[in-house]
């Protein structure tokens, strides 16, 4: 199945290193959600960022949405703030020395915990087929995939 939003998740605009005084402390890039409703920040369940094969854990980054910067712990509690459909957010990644100027291949995975499909249907009320094995009536919906697939990929040039 062709999927299109993934082609637009990683933005070339604003891809740069971040300085603090004279020190390069990391790098920044903008991303967009691939989810058609946009999302409450607390529903951003998982994010993976890989640059040139190196994975950067979310503990080492912040995300800035509508001018407010969050750690990923803070994000999980932000039940009243949204990431609007199509608007770029900025990821700031801690990496002393930053990235070298030149081309970099960036990969991204993102999963929103959407919950408007029942996760359990013990009475078999819904037309989702037979309950999964295990007898708990789980429909299988809303589980975070593990490992989270990297759905978006873009090679872009970092300019010093």
């Amino acid at each position: 199945m062709a999927v299109f939003y993934e082609d637009y998740m990683i933005c070339t605009r604003s891809f740069c290193n971040v300085m603090s005084g004279t020190q390069t402390t990391g790098f920044q890039l903008q991303i967009r959600t691939n989810y058609y409703r946009g999302t409450y920040l607390s529903q951003i369940d998982a994010l993976r960022l890989v640059v040139d094969g190196e994975e950067f854990p979310t503990d080492n980054m912040t995300i800035t949405i509508e001018g407010v910067t969050y750690t990923f712990d803070q994000l999980a509690k932000a039940t009243h703030k949204r990431w609007f459909f199509g608007d770029p957010a900025t990821l700031t990644v801690f990496k002393p020395g930053g990235l070298k100027p030149g081309p970099h291949t960036v990969q991204l995975g993102l999963f929103n915990r959407n919950s408007y499909i029942p996760r359990f249907d013990p009475e078999g009320l819904y037309p989702f087929g037979p309950p999964h094995a295990g007898g708990d009536g789980a429909t299988g919906y809303g589980k975070t995939p593990s490992p989270l697939p990297l759905v978006a990929k873009r090679t872009m040039t970092l300019v010093q």
Binding site: R37, Y40, S42, Q43, D45, A76, K77, T79, R113, N114
Partner: peptide, 9 residues
Amino acid sequence: QFQDTVLIK
């Protein structure tokens, strides 16, 4: 309308 029944993990 979308009812997000698990707003917090």
